[in-house]
Amino acid sequence: MRVVPILAGIGLTAAAGACAAAPPVTVFAAGDIADCRWSRPASSGAAGTAALIAERLPATPDAIVLTLGDTTYPVGLPAEYRDCYEPTWGAFRDRTRPTPGNHEYYNGSPAPYFDYFGAAAGARGLGYYSFEAGPWHVVSLNSHLSPADHARQLAWLREDLARHPARCTLAYWHVPLYSSGGHPPATNLRMQDAWRVLLAAGAELVLSGHDHDYERFAPMDAEGRPDARGIRQFVVGTGGAFLTPFRLGARGGEARQATDHGVLKLVLRDDGYDWEFLGVPRSWSEYPAPDVNDRGSATCH
């Protein structure tokens, strides 16, 4: 794998000045995960990304796992969770905080998703909730609600952010606002109003999936304009499902790749965050492992 840099430069974290900083929290995140239609679980893409997380847990025993939607394929049936997700990413269920994707709804109801994750998925049927990860406030949103339910989600989001003021805030949902992937850009605008609410609250990060690739964006406002105090978005649809090529050239992209499965590792610090894309080592001998991983650091606003 080669992550292709698009814009030069990565922001470096300023030296920490606090005398008693809160302990950092490690997060592993990816979406578009378990698909066993053409392989057994042990040889699926989800098994490869699960191995990346498992081998790092001894060094980060309190790590959190975020799933960014489309947890199973093709339609989120109970059998898909039991036979494909559980043997791979199921090892992390006790530390997983999920968000639903469009495939969770393809069976007509996301009930199997809520059945599998239980209380960790928030209030049943809503698909949005928040929690604290060390010094960070973290919000999971649902990008597949009806207009009326989405309006209620926005009202909840405003109240939640007002109740939990934090220097550093991360939000995640399935459909990205910005992407160079294959889904039509107009379909991504459903979460633009949520981006505005988060931006007004000073949020730092948004994570999404949906497009089966990895892409990092510069901080931007809700209209896609560069903004030093804007939100940085990562698209991490590389959790194990088939990868898809880039078809667009979205503004603000800084790095991207669509050749290797992998997960995003974040270290959430008291005053900022570090990121690294971890690619699954390749099995063919001439290219034994990903050759470049995207990594960097930034401070909170």
Results as ranks from 00 to 15, higher is better:
177 L>F: 07
138 V>A: 15
43 S>M: 05
149 D>H: 04
148 A>L: 07
89 W>Y: 15
155 A>I: 10
292 V>S: 00
240 G>W: 03
210 H>T: 12
63 A>D: 12
147 P>W: 01
186 A>E: 14
23 P>F: 13
70 D>Y: 03
195 W>C: 09
272 G>P: 05
266 L>E: 02
248 L>I: 11
280 V>Y: 06
261 H>S: 07
23 P>Y: 12
1 M>G: 15
137 H>F: 15
155 A>K: 09
203 A>H: 01
228 A>C: 01
181 G>Y: 02
214 Y>K: 05
213 D>N: 13
292 V>D: 07
47 A>W: 02
61 P>Q: 13
240 G>R: 06
188 N>T: 09
2 R>T: 15
120 A>S: 14
106 Y>P: 00
176 P>D: 06
117 F>C: 02
75 V>Y: 02
269 R>V: 01
138 V>Q: 04
196 R>W: 05
105 Y>F: 15
277 F>E: 04
107 N>T: 05
219 P>H: 03
285 S>I: 11
5 P>N: 07
190 R>I: 13
100 P>V: 13
37 R>D: 03
221 D>A: 03
35 D>N: 15
102 N>S: 13
12 L>Y: 05
1 M>S: 13
239 G>T: 12
120 A>I: 04
62 D>E: 14
289 A>S: 11
225 R>Q: 13
237 G>A: 09
287 Y>E: 15
40 R>C: 09
43 S>W: 03
298 A>N: 09
211 D>V: 03
216 R>A: 14
158 R>N: 06
116 Y>F: 12
228 A>K: 04
33 I>K: 09
291 D>C: 03
120 A>D: 10
103 H>E: 12
167 R>T: 12
247 R>E: 11
185 P>S: 13
161 L>M: 09
14 A>T: 12
37 R>L: 11
9 G>S: 02
35 D>A: 10
240 G>K: 06
98 P>E: 04
255 A>T: 05
254 E>T: 14
215 E>C: 02
228 A>R: 15
255 A>G: 11
277 F>H: 13
112 P>M: 02
48 G>W: 11
167 R>D: 05
82 R>Q: 14
127 G>D: 06
110 P>L: 09
124 R>C: 00
115 D>E: 04
26 T>E: 02
170 L>Y: 05
67 T>F: 10
109 S>N: 06
71 T>M: 01
174 H>N: 14
